[in-house]
Write a protein that binds this DNA or RNA. Structure first.
Lengths: 217, 217, 217, 217
DNA sequence: AATGAATGAGTCTTCATTCAT
DNA sequence: TATGAATGAAGACTCATTCAT
């Protein structure tokens, strides 16, 4: 079972861009600082110093401090998410998993890994959402059309095969996402377990969800 | 079934304090501004203006901008949370609910209501946690001793009566909390449904949880 | 030989005034704080707190912060100095000291004691002079007319009796004052010797001055 | 007889530093303003305006208002004083003055000139000492080791040649310094004589001191 | 492209002063 | 007379941004 490695995706974004080494340093350092201490608590001079460049250089490429933030978030929105989503859906299709609990286990592990490997970007993203809730709409819009029909189909398949309760898609998705979040969020915010067992966790959670979402007798 | 009304608790905190009307206005306005646009994005002059007082007045009582934040958060930590927890536990005891799904339904409605009624404070609290994750430890320490044993007892009772699966307390709690969050967080961050049906939601969620947490056959 | 005790003079000033106990506390505390940390570095709220009165009370009597300063300095200018000068001159007259070195010894001890006993007021005064050099003119004008003729007479007597060199009064006075200052200033600024022997010092200094100011052979 | 010209030393400090023209203007203007109206009475916006720079520029280099003060005082402590002391001692050695009164005359003129040419810095320094008396200890520690032995040797030579009374070095030094101060301090605080005759003054003072410090018959 | 000195609007904070009680 | 809450002008300092080199 192959799992998305999105750690590479940020670096891939860096490499794909025609940014100089210094500009990449600026972006990379900004990601870490924004994640660690928040956008507002990070000054551009701090970024310059940490990146080992002059203050002018920080603005040469990204124009404004907000430009840096967008340079971090936009790829997530524009490329990472859709790409991941497509990849993800394709993989699911390819896997042709017919057992619902196995399906869940696969999905949970994949998404937990994704989240844990992109902690920094997610943290920055989360902070930004608090400030600008409309972001989540943008995100949803991008993923929704892509996923909805697909997910709907998948759910309907499992419902047809008598493995999934006949609730609205949104409700079922809510419980699944909520369960993922309940594992991942604490890990991201505070490093509780440094060696968090994704496999075990996704297995446990899949079992719980499969039963909670089983059709009523 | 009586539900905690904690909207009153912030105002009660205000009234209990010997703050003047203007100081209360400062605190009240700060709560809203911090929740709406974040601590760092709210200037003290903005607070002063919104509260209809001079900028000096803001600092007369609270000394620093951080002092205002503490004046909002500390009561939550020191009084509201423990008090709510105690009340909550007492009510559960009094209710003597023997059916697990009914128990869940009760708990979910109570906590969802609590969260929704204190959106502002929770939002400020959440933002502060991102900045200072140690806060959650403080919170947990305060609630833990109070709840742990009690919750453990309750879970063990349901396990003894064959209504609850034999998983670790922390895991069971994780799924319950995760489910609550999956309903409440979107509501708090973005006002999706202005008329969110707590009763329906807690009923649905209770059914889902009760089945997911039922003992294995 | 009786020496001026001007420590009492400040308190006498306090008592002579029809200030309430609280107002006296304000003045007294201000003197100490101004001397210790400077006028500009002392806030009126600090004074209020140290005096154990409300902030309003500080202004009730003295109107402004500068008013407090004047209430400390003016008496020195208006009463203490002239009074001391008069007393001093009278004493000198009464003492009828014919030996120049004895005269110097007497004068030095008297003035050193005066200075040491009024360290606080002198320190405040000194600080204020830096800020407002015209003050020294005011002081000089007040003392000059009073002293000049008298001192001139005395010096001329000692010159006539062949004990004092025939230099201008201002020059002779300069050396005497300079010598006093060389002993007293270090004591006031930094408490070098906590037990400074005024008697010994004035005796030594008198010997030095008497010889330095002896007529040329 | 060549006399230290220390007016140049502040400017030399400026030139030695790699400060931009604007930063030098800030320092130069600050020196004058601090001297004229005191550190606490000088606002950073006032400095910026007088230096013809923005307020940000003032802080870019010196970080804090206190940083400006240190940039003015530290060179005096770290370089000017020791350098001057060394130069001074070397000159004295080179001069090989055997007559005590001539020696005093030389020393007095040199030091008076030094003081008068650095009025501003001395005034700032003096104000700072009132606020932070420990500064004088720092100063003394720096000069002491350098001078003590040397001065002690010189005094002992004059004592051996029967031109200097057998008093403790500290006492002799006190009278000399006191006499210098009696001439210089009034000049610095209030510009009494704009055309003050250093040569005449040092000559007069040397005569006075030489006699006052002559050995007892 | 990179630098870093310079900018100035904006931020938090202090403080002398006032005034209703 | 005394209080202390309230004021608002002014202060030190920060920081995103610009521009000449």
């Amino acid at each position: 079972m192959q799992v998305n490695n999105v750690e590479t995706l940020f670096q891939k974004t860096l490499q794909d861009s025609d940014l100089t080494a210094k500009q990449q340093a600026v972006l990379s350092v900004s990601l870490n600082l924004f994640a660690a201490q928040g956008f507002d608590r990070t000054s551009t001079s701090e970024i310059a110093q940490a990146a080992g460049v002059s203050e002018g250089t920080v603005f040469k490429q990204f124009k404004t401090k907000d430009g840096i933030l967008r340079a971090i978030i936009d790829p997530v929105l524009d490329q990472v998410i859709p790409m991941a989503a497509t990849e993800f859906m394709t993989e699911i299709d390819a896997a042709k998993i017919t057992d619902f609990e196995n399906f869940l286990s696969y999905v949970l592990e994949d998404r937990m890994t994704f989240a844990l490997e992109n902690q920094q970007q997610i943290k920055v993203f989360a902070q930004e959402i608090i400030r600008q809730p409309s972001l989540i709409q943008v995100l949803l819009n991008k993923v929704q059309t892509l996923i909805t029909s697909k997910v709907g189909d998948i759910f309907r398949n499992f419902q047809a095969s008598g493995q999934l309760v006949d609730w609205p898609v949104s409700q079922i998705a809510r419980y699944i996402v909520g369960t993922i979040v309940s594992y991942v969020l604490p890990q991201i915010l505070f490093q509780l377990d440094t060696n968090f067992d994704v496999k075990q966790a996704s297995h446990d959670a899949a079992k719980f969800l499969a039963r909670g979402l089983a059709p009523e007798k």
